[in-house]
């Protein structure tokens, strides 16, 4: 976490002088100097760094030049939009991937399996932005049944959610298929078959519960990928999320916003990993809670 924070700090300082972007073109040398002082950029790097770290520890990332508000507030507002998009995409991916992956395993090497796995391969290799553009062209411009971009109503969710979730769904479906097949070969499945359990019980309690352990791990990691995917896709759909914010902030050298965004994202990943571990323990009794 500290490493991320430091790297961001250094990268941003290397990227150039923010004041030159912020200041109006006709600003005098005095005005620029005054701005520097106001934001603390006249101080040596180590002083800036110490202030920066001290601020972070108090949850203070400084004030955004662009918005004149605390950077953290702006980031959190936008984060909500990104998270809701990523969550919707994750939900869609799971709802699609689990049954399809399972069906593929169930009808292994039969036509249905081949069709599903080819689709998954396609979904996995299709670049997200390309898919986004194609979907906009077809559904928004051509058929006119979905908004081209922006946010606000539920309808606005549809295209970006589908766009972001496709690759994840494809990935998870392939994973589900292979995990189900792997679980099917386990000796306890033979026992469960010998007991003549109802098909549903066999599938839910024995196959899926065991296959879920690795699937959850991958799903968790995929959520991270989804967040990054959302950042690219947001710009395509004009979704007012973190991605759009960061791109804009980088362009304007709005350091405090970029720093806040990166730190919050890193924090999300830490929380995400902890959550995966917790779910892991819930699913697998062999893992001791330490």
């Amino acid at each position: 976490m500290w490493g991320v924070v430091t790297v961001v700090f250094l990268l941003l300082r290397l990227s150039g002088d923010p004041i030159s972007v912020v200041a109006p073109p006709d600003a005098t040398v005095e005005m620029i100097a005054a701005l520097r002082q106001a934001y603390g950029f006249d101080q040596p790097l180590y002083v800036q760094y110490t202030r920066y770290i001290a601020g972070i520890l108090q949850g203070d990332f400084g004030v955004s030049f662009q918005y004149g508000q605390p950077a953290i507030m702006i980031v959190i507002q936008r984060l909500g939009a990104t998270m809701s998009l990523a969550t919707a995409a994750m939900a869609l991916a799971i709802v699609l991937a689990l049954p399809l992956g399972f069906l593929s395993a169930r009808y292994r090497d039969r036509p249905l399996d081949h069709v599903l796995m080819s689709l998954a391969m396609l979904g996995n290799t299709m670049p997200t932005f390309l898919l986004g553009i194609v979907l906009i062209l077809v559904f928004a411009l051509w058929l006119g049944i979905a908004p081209t971009g922006g946010a606000g109503s539920l309808a606005h969710y549809v295209l970006p959610t589908v766009t972001i979730s496709l690759a994840t769904a494809a990935n998870l479906a392939r994973m589900t298929r292979s995990e189900v097949l792997e679980t099917l070969g386990k000796p306890f499945i033979r026992t469960a078959r010998a007991k003549r359990l109802p098909f549903r019980r066999l599938v839910t309690a024995h196959i899926l519960k065991n296959a879920a352990i690795p699937i959850v791990t991958v799903a968790g990691l995929q959520f991270g990928a989804l967040l990054s995917g959302a950042i690219v896709t947001e710009t395509v759909f004009g979704w007012p999320g973190l991605g759009t914010l960061v791109l804009e902030a980088i362009g304007r050298r709005d350091y405090s916003v970029v720093q806040a965004a990166v730190c919050i994202t890193a924090l999300i990943f830490v929380v995400l990993n902890a959550a995966i571990d917790a779910v892991y323990q819930l699913l697998d009794p062999r893992i001791k809670v330490v």
């Binding site: 306890f188 026992t191 469960a192 007991k195 359990l197 019980r201 309690a205 062999r286």
Partner: peptide, 20 residues
Amino acid sequence: TALNPVLTIEAQIVETLKAR
């Protein structure tokens, strides 16, 4: 290994008796 690692013994015996 013939027993399911993620279910309690109770779950595994009870499901059997329910089914049978």
